Computed example of a mutant assay.
Amino acid sequence: MSRNSDVASTAAVELEALPPEAQAFHRRARIVDAAVREIAERGYGAVTVADIAERAGVTRSVFYGTFGDKQEALIWAYDAAAAYAIPQILDALAAERDWVRGAAAALGTYLTILDCDRAWALVCLRDVPAAGERARAARDAVRAPILRALEEQVATQPPAGVGVDTVLTAIDAVTIDCLRHDPGQSLLERQEELTALALAAFTDEPAALEPAAAELQESPFGGGELDVLLGGGETAQADLERLVIEAAAQRDGPALWRVVVALAQRRAAGERVAERAEQLALDALDEAWFFGLVLDPRRPPADAAVSHEELRHLRFLAAHPASTGEEIRRGLGVRHLSQVNRTLRRLEARGLVRRAPGAGRSSAWTVKSTSLDELLD
Rank of each mutant, 00 (worst) to 15 (best):
M1L: 11
V7R: 02
A12W: 15
A12S: 12
L15E: 14
P20Q: 12
P20K: 09
A22T: 06
A22Q: 06
Q23L: 10
R30I: 09
V36L: 12
V36D: 07
E41Q: 11
E41T: 13
R42L: 08
G43W: 01
G45V: 00
V47G: 01
I52N: 02
T59Q: 04
V62K: 03
T66Q: 11
K70N: 00
E72G: 10
I75L: 08
D79R: 15
A82C: 03
A82G: 00
P87F: 02
A104W: 13
Y110A: 14
L111N: 05
T112A: 01
L114R: 06
A121M: 10
A130S: 10
E133M: 13
A135I: 07
A137G: 07
D140S: 09
V142H: 04
P145K: 03
L147S: 09
Q153T: 10
V154P: 01
P158S: 09
A160G: 14
D165S: 13
T169G: 13
A170W: 13
D172I: 15
D172G: 13
L179N: 09
R180M: 13
D182V: 04
Q185M: 02
S186E: 15
A196G: 10
A196K: 14
A198M: 15
E205M: 04
E210L: 12
A212Y: 00
F221E: 04
G223N: 08
G223F: 01
D227L: 15
V228S: 11
L230V: 02
I245K: 12
A247S: 02
R251M: 07
P254H: 03
A255S: 01
W257S: 00
R258I: 01
L263M: 07
R266V: 02
A268H: 01
G270P: 00
E271L: 05
R272L: 15
E278R: 12
L282K: 05
A284W: 02
A288K: 01
L293H: 12
L295P: 04
D296N: 06
R298E: 11
D303Y: 15
L314G: 03
F316T: 01
F316G: 04
A318N: 09
H320E: 15
V334Y: 05
V340K: 02
T343P: 00
T343L: 01
L347Y: 02
L347V: 05
R355F: 11
V367K: 04
L372H: 13
E374N: 08
